[in-house]
Design a protein around this nucleic acid. Structure first.
Lengths: 204, 204, 204, 204
DNA sequence: ACAAGCGGGACTACCCGTTGTT
DNA sequence: AACAACGGGTAGTCCCGCTTGT
């Protein structure tokens, strides 16, 4: 049906992403990737100028999908509700749904991985990472801000900080989930985040 | 008095830790470390059997210090208060104090770094990481459990999950703080965690 | 009018010659050449069987032009004078004219370049180089021989050696001119050669 | 007797110089050199930071020896005669002696070789080449200048140009000698240079 | 306890040439 | 006639670890 005949660059990116999340970027050799997709160096360097460029392309694709994920849940929440507070909880709910579907620990976040190999990358890469984190802060922050207008929170908080907290909890849970080999951990941590929001916006 | 003339293994570990947190373990070559401390391979292999052993020693020292940090704040909180609820907020407060003292982004967590280079390490290393995260869950979890006995929380939560949340938020904030080059971010995120606890244990 | 739309092989040869004189043959990759002329491998291998064949074709064209240069000045000198001595000085003069027109150092001689990468080429190429140098020795040597018949030289010299000297001085001046970034050097060295001939054939 | 136990860098330089003069720098692989001296890459990179640095070291040693050759013949000529004109002819004579001793074509000049692979090297290398050629121009030029003071030449010439001519003739003869596989050619060309000087400084 | 030198292997980058297609 | 894609091989670089010596 969806005869998605994957093209070579995509095949390479797919294999690379998975390997990088397991080994780190530096320890992921081109040979490892190319063995995975049954190609040779010649093919690789026809599509990418260097390994560094592969790293950048990998991150760019990841960041785009990451923003698309947020855009998606924001859009869906908008179709299901008008009230910002309801929308906010819908957003968290949709993310929780995905977390609950995991049967093994979340594969992790490429941006976090790159952060722990910071010196390997140039400013262009650092900028993409920062922008993507800030995108969540701003997009989600707007919704939180709107919710705070509808219902004053029980603690004086910054919408940006509360938005960042979702990112923090997620990133931290990715790591913890992997370290303890517990696929359900992410869902439980997102539930804590939901608890926080519920208490924050509790009536009375 | 405290003329602690650092011995060679310690010098190596210090340089290595800083470099690994910036470059990742794979991309940190022995030459880089040894240049930093003005030593040669001969000296290194006299003290460490291999690079892998250095990695293990690095992690062990880090994990010990990490547990010691928790032991320390727990002990101090015990000297300042008896009530578990008060002690819990003291623990968070002491950790916040450290976060507020940062003038540049937190250097990060070696355990998180290793998680994103998982395949480079053996089960012995993975075990240390898991145990250290579980140590926080259990030690802090006990205190939270005691607090919940004193004052029933406004949401039904597991003490372990609430304890894990501190780890998640911290790990996530390390990454976010670095990515956005914002040293104060960690403190603000810990404040969100404190908010959560305050709302959870609010007396109506 | 003479809208000589250069054909592909010529375009390739032109770009290759310039690049080889700057980088040497080994360090001139096909990709470099093809980027220069905006073509791909497919086009190249349609016109040349291999890089080695390009090298041969390059040299052959160069050697032909080199012999044509000598033929040209010899023919022009023959139209301007009958006396071999006069013709000889006319030949040198015409070559000097070209040297004086240079605004940047002479691009160099492909045969000299190949001599310093001798092992890359086969006997066929070596033969072309030797024959071209010998062609100058013989053609110019004949004229010098005739001049010596007309006017006995003040030193007993071999016509072939005196002919070779023009090649030596030129080849050496190409190098010296480049090394010192002095476009006028070639002209000044040819003047020394002319001085030698003048003194050699001085009437007492 | 002179138990000259060659050290590793010297062994490498010796093998490299010979190979570079035959193949050119680009086409001389480290493997070729290291096979010749029975070493491995590990050993090479312990002594040289890169192939480029080898190239520089190679040239520096060559240039030093080249200047030492001139210094040597100038010094010997000074011990054998006082008169600059006599010294000048002694210098040429000593150089001719060396040329006549050759049983196979002169191995060539590294500086000329590098000139035909110009783009491979940086300005530091270009500077060394230019300085070395200029050294001959100045040192030999001084002697020629002194000779011209003693005996006015029969043509108005610049001492520098006459000095350069020796370099030109030599460099050109290296190439011609190789191309025609004629070891005696260099000696015969130097004889032409001597003829030129004799005629230039002829009495009457 | 540490330094110098070196072996052996891995990795990125690049290069030449071929194939299939338009 | 020309291009995109790719295979196979090789070059330069670097890295870990061992040996030998002081």
């Amino acid at each position: 049906m969806l005869e998605t005949k994957a093209d070579t660059p995509t095949l390479i990116l797919d294999a690379a992403e998975q390997l990088v999340l397991e080994h780190g970027f530096a320890a992921t050799s081109l040979d490892m990737i190319l063995t995975e997709v049954s190609l040779t160096k010649g093919a690789f360097f026809h599509h990418f100028r260097s390994k560094a460029e592969l790293g950048r392309a990998l991150l760019e694709r990841f960041a785009e999908r990451d923003r698309a994920l947020l855009d998606g849940v924001l859009a869906r929440s908008g179709r299901l509700a008008r009230d910002p507070l309801q929308r906010l909880f819908l957003v968290i709910g949709l993310l929780q749904e995905e977390a609950l579907a995991l049967t093994e620990p979340h594969p992790g976040c490429l941006m976090a991985s790159y952060c722990y190999e910071r010196q390997l990358f140039g400013d262009a890469v650092h900028a993409i990472i920062a922008e993507t984190f800030v995108y969540w802060r701003e997009q989600l922050g707007q919704l939180i801000h709107a919710a705070m207008a509808v219902r004053p929170p029980r603690r004086e908080v910054s919408a940006a900080d509360v938005a960042d907290l979702l990112t923090s909890v997620s990133e931290g849970a990715f790591i913890l989930s992997r370290a303890t080999a517990d696929p359900a951990l992410l869902g439980r941590q997102l539930q804590q985040y939901r608890n926080y929001l519920e208490l924050l916006f509790d009536e009375k």
